[in-house]
Design a protein around this nucleic acid. Sequence first.
DNA 1: CCTAGTTACGTACAGCGTACGTAGTGCGCT
DNA 2: AGCGCACTACGTACGCTGTACGTAACTAGG
Lengths: 237, 237
Amino acid sequence: MAGRAAVPEVIWARPERTGRGPRPAFTRADIAAAAVRLADAGGLDAVSMRHVAAELGCGTMSLYNYVPRKEDLYELMVDAVSGEHDLFEPTGDWRADMLRNARQTKALMHRHPWMVRLMSGVYGFSPNALRYLEHCLACLDPLEAPYGTKIELVAMLNGCVTTYVSNELSTAERVRSLPWSEEQENAVRIAYLGGQVASGAYPRLAASFAEDSGPIDLDAVFERMLGRVLDGFSPRG
Amino acid sequence: MAGRAAVPEVIWARPERTGRGPRPAFTRADIAAAAVRLADAGGLDAVSMRHVAAELGCGTMSLYNYVPRKEDLYELMVDAVSGEHDLFEPTGDWRADMLRNARQTKALMHRHPWMVRLMSGVYGFSPNALRYLEHCLACLDPLEAPYGTKIELVAMLNGCVTTYVSNELSTAERVRSLPWSEEQENAVRIAYLGGQVASGAYPRLAASFAEDSGPIDLDAVFERMLGRVLDGFSPRG
DNA sequence: CCTAGTTACGTACAGCGTACGTAGTGCGCT
DNA sequence: AGCGCACTACGTACGCTGTACGTAACTAGG
């Protein structure tokens, strides 16, 4: 009766099983996996309590026994894919190791494009996130710096990767739910942008368009960015 | 009759006024201002088509004459606050100027905390965003580098500022709509985190907690971050 | 054994974005 | 001048959302 208290809690602090009552039909991992499956297939908007419940084959409201709020479902999802990180053995070369981590994160976000929308809004203290953070700190053992600085490094690198992928995917993820194609969308935007630039109101922007730099190599842009971030933390850099 | 085509378009490409028919009762600026007012007062979730219409004093569906999709309303909002940037005269010291721009952006996002949620998802080619970009490029005139690099700089700096503020505000903006206080929320999260760290599963994380570095000076963290980003673009840096 | 705490889930409500139909208005063209 | 069309305005309605609440079945601890 009175067990339905609306009390502040982190889902990770609430035990998955308390012992009383019937055996739960699912684990948190089941639920997270179902939600991730839906998001991968149909974007984040396809993840509704009803859809996840249907995917699991249970009533909608039964989900609330496992996940008190929708936001907690998001936390489960983020934790689940955070577990996809390969926590390799540090090599002793912290720069190379962190590059590897960053590339992995990028690949992970390409696999799960909805992640970028969840990263800004979820806390990042889920078990797998903590494991990943600990792994990064292990990679940074060779770097002589206080832990505070190392955590700043990890945060900045992750942030940059997220922002980068977010820009990369901003059309792709959005376009999924629109009734027209990405080509159309881009064509319209480029036409508009070209018109603006041609208006003469933005001379430097126009110059940058005119600058002949060949086709943009996104991978190179990404790698340059990583290098710059790491440079900022290298001794005598 | 047939004028309600669902055609891909950027709202900025659609003229605000076509000449035919009755005078529109509002300008885009009116609508953006109303939405911004609501978001400032009640968070982004308070911005619904119905609420904005009520704030303007018109019927809900009338809004759709001005704003074909909700997403376009978001674009109007982002453009409106982008116009709050002070496009000062460049001083010739590109580093100082970009620092000033970044600090301004941070202040702007503190004034409108909902912006961080919109920044990842909106395109950023609105008139005021273009003006701001052009201004940044003007500040970067003294830097000898191709425009491609300068744009990478602006993107990275903006991205880092956004990420930083996002982390800073992740609780604050969220907590607004929860039925308990931020103190409670934080207490619960810290208790949980402390427990995890104390479990011994994360030795380096535990060490970083134990590290005595005095109270965290967020402003200093922010400034360090800016410095590192700019260092990555400084000649012989 | 009993009972308190859980699981399961149907119903219901308030709110959302928005498709569509209709009525009224005034510019542009003939 | 006046016809017609593009536009504004907006009520109604639909399908969807998160989730509060009530009820019935179940099981482990006292």
